[in-house]
Amino acid sequence: MDLFKYFRSKRKSVDVAKERLSILIARDRIQMGQPSFLPMLQKELLEVIQKYVDIDSKDFSLALDTENDCEVLEINVVLPEKATDKM
């Protein structure tokens, strides 16, 4: 019998549950607060940008934030090293 294996504490399933749940709920809460058009806007904006520059969807992000009393739409685009001119 592998004594070391026996004594090494097994990760309890409840710890896995807690971790997954915290992440899940944080994500649900962000999505709940968002206007429903946001995913659509993100998709269409990405398509427009991709018409001109060759970028991947992972290089593009869009977020709605509140700063003071202002709602700010933050768009982040990472351009490739040498942006190829598609036109």
Partner: peptide, 16 residues
Amino acid sequence: RVEKGEMLSVDDVKDI
């Protein structure tokens, strides 16, 4: 089951 680490505890749920 909470003691065995199989079920979320009161405090876990309250925290979350």
